[in-house]
Simulated assay, not measured.
Amino acid sequence: MMDRSRRNRVLGKTGLLLLAFLLCLLGSGLQPSLAAEKAITLKAVSAFPQNNRMNDGLWIFQKKVKEKSKGGLEIAWGGGPEAIPTFQLVEAIRNGVVDLAWTAHTFNVSQLPVVEGAKLSKLTPWDERKKGIHDFYQNAYQKKLNAYYLGRGTPGLTYNLYTTVPVKSIGDFKGMTIRVTPAYKAFVEALGAAPVTTDPGEVFGALQRKMVQGYGWPSLGISDFGWDEVTKFVIEPAFYQVDVMTLVHIQAWNKLPKEMQEALNSSIQEMELEASEHFAKLISQDREKIKKKGVQEVRLSGQEAERYLQTAYEASWREVLKKDQSSGAQLRDLLSQ
């Protein structure tokens, strides 16, 4: 039998050889098998603050990607507007500064004018895929912004106008001053109202001091800013769809194994279905909440409602066609099928 001292010397040499082997592996850039199996990570930057409801679809998507890829692909939060300002995110995705942008078509209009028409869709995301509209956006984003278009983030989430004065007909908007964003500025002008632009943080004071008599906003969330305390009416019908969507930089996309690309595509489609139900439920709950705070629902009926919606869509299509006649007409035809 080997004596104890000789055995210790052999074991000691074996340990040193093993240690040297591991150091060589690390020094050469190779990783032990556990490290080699580390998940691929895509850093996502959002146009919205982390706790904003516009990110609800992102959290659903993030969970589904991890599940479908069996942990092989992860979407990591890379920050909101504090990381990259909202309107600069389009440049960041075009230049490959971020892997994934959770943004909105509206924020990309400076680079791709035709997508101003995206909010005018009355279709579900799955119908858009069937009718070739998803492919239209895919081609446009890859060609102009070096980005792969995955899909929509807020399906079914609409806009409303909210006022401090009663509205019984379209004519009642004439002469009002209404706070707007670019998404519905043309509509407000077509109603005969005067549009003004302010930061969301200034809206409460503007309403309280009667500097404005109304504003547009998605069909939920006014209580997040306390606006329900100074709002008297919410006008129905709702119009447009909030056009949150997501893009992956084309190089980041092309580097992914095919099964990971499939995981992203299938996850976004499942998320769109869930998000559609999610936002429908939130809108209903939010409406009941603001009604309890004293906000009255005004429903334009019959011909007035038809004229209201016709004004909303025609005014915005004019803007789209003014900016890109050819592509705008193509998108309008696709959305009208």
Rank of each mutant, 00 (worst) to 15 (best):
R9E: 13
T14S: 09
F21A: 14
L25F: 07
L25G: 15
L42Q: 03
L42W: 05
K43V: 10
N52I: 00
D56F: 06
A76E: 14
G78A: 04
P81K: 03
A83F: 14
A83W: 13
V90D: 09
V90G: 12
E91H: 11
A92M: 06
A92T: 05
I93R: 02
I93M: 05
I93Q: 01
W102V: 07
V115R: 01
K119M: 14
K122P: 01
K122I: 08
P125I: 08
K130V: 13
G132W: 06
H134Q: 12
H134A: 09
A140R: 11
A140Y: 13
Q142W: 08
Q142E: 15
Y148D: 02
G151I: 12
P155D: 11
T163S: 13
V167S: 04
G171M: 12
M176S: 07
R179F: 08
A194M: 10
A194G: 02
V196A: 09
V196C: 10
D199A: 13
F204D: 01
Q208P: 02
K210N: 12
M211G: 02
G221D: 07
G221R: 03
G221C: 09
F225T: 03
W227H: 01
E229W: 02
E229D: 10
V230Y: 11
V230M: 08
K232T: 12
A238H: 07
Q241K: 03
T246H: 01
T246C: 13
Q251P: 02
L256Q: 03
K258V: 14
Q261L: 01
A263T: 01
N265K: 14
S266E: 12
I268P: 00
L273K: 13
L273C: 04
E277D: 14
K281E: 13
L282W: 13
K289S: 03
K291T: 00
K291I: 00
K292R: 11
K293R: 14
V298C: 04
G302M: 11
Q303C: 01
E306N: 08
R307N: 14
Y308F: 15
L309C: 05
T311W: 11
S327E: 14
A329L: 15
A329G: 12
D333Q: 13
D333Y: 05
